[in-house]
Design a protein around this nucleic acid. Structure first.
Lengths: 185, 185
DNA sequence: CTCATGTGTAAACACGCATTGACATAACGG
DNA sequence: CCGTTATGTCAATGCGTGTTTACACATGAG
């Protein structure tokens, strides 16, 4: 038996993200996670203390939000959708956004994390693009559309027959563009 | 002690919807539901058989989708948003949509129910408005936006400081209008 | 009044879960 | 090779859960 604490911790983290993303926080058991990682259950407590802390670490990594500082204003909407859309085309089972959207429904830690992303990344981005005034409103509108898209893909599992990729990207890009730049009412 | 099985069943159903909406399926215990209803736990099994069946009944009632057959085409988007928006302004703790959006994340029954609403109510509505072609795509886009709005209100608890009611209604109404009627690409 | 039935209560059961502690074994410097 | 430390295993514990069982009480017809 090869022994390497770093590797097993990493395997546990990956397995945790996958399980949490697929089944939510309550439905995934530490036994499932350990089984998928191929290690003993007790190691979760040894290395992470508790299931809750393992979960916290699983959602601790930053969402790699795209850098849009040098993008043409007219293309920002499309870049944003495409960024999220391509993530699940590559079907990352352990994608952080996937974990968050599913688990936030029953776990305050995950909901807080989404709020942190909204306040810490989306609002500042919008502020830089359009100025202070109304940035929080605009950012929230953007959040409703992106999270709704994620919800339909991750939780309802709407496939391409429902959300045809090119059409969907185009339609939602235009929406985001309007939420970002449309003159205030 | 007054004894009335109909009344207690009804109280259990209301309490169940409230608890499921607030905490999701796994986190709400039958004991919590019974306590809120002010009745004994065992009555849940007597009257509903199991927690799962109680839940099924809690989400069995139909969503009162507005009748839009006689509404001006230009106002349908606004009517749609306003219909959902006014529900939570009256803060119905046991609102069905609220229950569904939260529980679908971890409960297949709820996710199926949302799919039934999408396929059985939204798609037909769109079909009637714009014809067969592309109705499923358009309806799905509408779903992403409405569910995203519900997600932000119900799960993230974004208040009026994030989603200012009049602006939000206007912005999203325009989006739905476009998803419904914009010419196909 | 009385008894059968509908309704409510309390305790106990069975199960799955996260967590823990005692023990085994690999890794590795001396 | 030895002994210490890091890493992994196993069984047991305690708790919370949904469910069931046995019992108590109200209700209303005969």
């Amino acid at each position: 038996m090869i022994r390497n604490s770093e590797a097993t911790q990493s395997r546990l983290l990956m397995a945790a993200k996958g399980q949490f993303a697929a089944n939510g926080y309550e439905r995934t058991t530490v036994r499932d996670i350990a089984a998928e990682a191929g290690v003993n259950v007790a190691l979760i407590n040894r290395y992470f203390g508790s299931k809750e802390e393992l979960f916290a670490q699983a959602v601790a990594i930053d969402l790699e939000f795209p850098d849009l500082s040098d993008v043409n204003k007219g293309e920002i909407g499309e870049r944003l959708v495409r960024h999220f859309y391509t993530r699940w085309e590559g079907n990352y089972a352990d994608d952080l956004l996937r974990v968050l959207v599913r688990t936030a429904a029953t776990n305050a830690t995950a909901a807080d994390k989404i709020m942190k992303i909204l306040n810490g990344q989306i609002v500042p981005l919008v502020t830089k693009l359009t100025g202070e005034a109304g940035a929080q409103h605009r950012a929230s509108l953007v959040a409703t559309q992106i999270l709704g898209l994620a919800y339909c893909r991750y939780i309802l599992n709407l496939g391409d027959d429902y959300l045809d990729p090119p059409d969907t990207v185009a339609a939602i890009a235009e929406t985001l563009q309007r939420y970002l730049f449309a003159p205030a009412t």
